[in-house]
């Protein structure tokens, strides 16, 4: 390391370690750090015009959350719409886009990428159907699963209109995007947003008046997935094409 003497480095390392230890200690104590669920209302914004389909978000999610190989908490779809045939788009999502996509040659079709994840619905159909209260909406607006309580009946998987839930093959409980609850409650962003090179996906705190999400929603054409489902989705897409399902 040319730029930093080892000594300097380890001073910094020490500082980081102390910081992280302090954070861990705060988490472990009965009264967790200043984070208060009442002050937040989480969601996400996705800018279709920025998504390059690199798949780093899907790969990062898998690495961060140990997502099993054959299932996905977030994935990317590539759409191709021929002319006015927006009812029958061609869609693909090999490995959920974790390894990226094979380049698409120029053609007459309109094509674009759409990242998908749990919509953290405000009136969530999956929470509604859970028979035991093992999936729920946290006070700060994140739909979570209680792994130690889920019976694995799969009703929630059936009830999700977006296909974002699955049964974890080893744990045999419902699994889904937690909006990186373990990260966002410590002031970090989600793993997918961290890994996104273009800022196409951004964590949004709708209760924070200074969050750019308000400007984003005000100044852009916004749509949610399957609005007819009236689930109160909190993942807001900018310039979402009508062909997207």
């Amino acid at each position: 390391m040319k730029d930093l003497s080892r000594r300097q480095l380890f001073e910094k390392a020490g500082r980081f370690l102390i910081l992280s230890n302090a954070a861990a200690a705060a988490l472990n104590s009965a009264e967790p750090n200043p984070y208060s669920t009442a002050d937040h209302w989480w969601g996400m914004t996705i800018d279709i015009d920025q998504c390059i389909g690199c798949g780093n978000c899907a790969a990062a999610c898998q690495a961060e959350n140990k997502v099993p190989e054959e299932f996905h908490r977030t994935w990317i779809e590539r759409y191709q719409v021929q002319g006015d045939d927006y009812q029958h788009p061609q869609v693909e999502s090999p490995h959920g886009g974790r390894e990226g996509f094979t380049p698409l040659p120029e053609s007459a079709a309109k094509s674009f990428y759409v990242p998908k994840l749990c919509n953290h619905c405000a009136t969530s159909p999956c929470v509604q159907v859970c028979p035991v209260g093992a999936t729920f909406e946290s006070p700060d607006g994140v739909v979570l699963v209680d792994e130690s309580y889920c019976v694995g009946c799969r009703y929630c998987v059936q009830a999700c209109p977006y296909g974002t839930r699955f049964i974890h093959p080893e744990k045999q409980v419902a699994d889904k995007c937690t909006l990186c609850y373990h990260r966002i409650t410590q002031g970090l962003t989600t793993a997918c947003a961290e890994a996104c090179p273009t800022g196409a996906r951004k964590l949004a705190d709708l209760k924070d008046p200074k969050d750019p999400v308000h400007e984003f929603l005000r100044t852009n054409t916004i749509q949610v997935l399957k609005p007819q489902m009236a689930t109160g989705s909190k993942v807001y897409y900018k310039n979402l094409d009508g062909a997207v399902r």
């Binding site: 988490l27 967790p32 669920t37 990062a60 690495a63 961060e64 959350n65 209260g133 093992a134 999936t135 729920f136 909406e137 946290s138 006070p139 979570l144 699963v145 209680d146 792994e147 130690s148 309580y149 937690t178 609850y181 373990h182 990260r183 409650t185 410590q186 970090l188 793993a191 961290e194 890994a195």
Partner: peptide, 20 residues
């Protein structure tokens, strides 16, 4: 305590390790 779920589940979800 907060809704129809185990209050401890919130903390369980927060305690997951961070990789990034």
């Amino acid at each position: 305590l907060y809704g129809h779920y185990r209050a401890g589940a919130l903390k369980d979800n927060r305690m997951k390790p961070v990789s990034f």
